[in-house]
């Protein structure tokens, strides 16, 4: 069930569109922002709200990589694996994360603190390698900086 706050927020988001279904992606993102990820139950809630079937909603949800259909940690680190970051050594950052938190791309730490996901070029190529944690972007990330950066994300 959507909470009243959620419902109000979603209704607001739909105002920009001529019909409900056009807001599907916005609604998914908003629900995800509150709930962390999109569970089967969230799919049902959204489907009901948008007067669509869960198939309609999930078809859209599973297309987009920023919509999580599996639970993620409290924080999500998006590690850019595109070309400029690859040249500049993103793989070392990935190794560092692996060493330090025992998780590879696509995994979540056991304590639920962090999920690391690969991401397409973050548009920070002049500061490669780049990483985004939650909504904050870090450039010129080197393995030795990882720990300091992560301090903010408990």
């Amino acid at each position: 069930m959507l909470s009243d706050t959620e419902r109000r927020e979603l209704e607001d988001a739909l105002k920009h569109y001529p019909d409900k279904r056009s807001g599907t992606i916005d609604v998914l993102l908003l629900v995800q922002r509150r709930r962390g990820w999109i569970s089967d139950e969230s799919i049902l809630d959204i489907a009901q709200f948008l007067e669509m079937t869960s198939e309609d909603v999930d078809s859209v949800a599973t297309f987009y990589n920023l919509i999580f259909r599996k639970p993620v940690g409290r924080h999500v680190a998006f590690l850019c694996d595109s070309i400029s970051c690859w040249i500049m050594g993103y793989e070392q950052v990935r190794e560092q994360l692996k060493k330090q938190y025992d998780i590879d791309l696509g995994q979540t730490t056991r304590d639920g603190r962090l999920t690391v996901l690969p991401i397409a070029c973050l548009g920070q190529c002049e500061r490669a390698p780049a990483m985004m944690i939650d909504q904050n972007v870090y450039g010129e990330v080197t393995p030795d900086k990882v720990e300091t950066i992560m301090e903010k994300y408990k």
Partner: peptide
């Protein structure tokens, strides 16, 4: 949408 790797001008 600027997702072309290597591209950051619009940002």
């Amino acid at each position: 949408d600027e997702m072309e790797p290597g591209t950051f001008k619009d940002r």
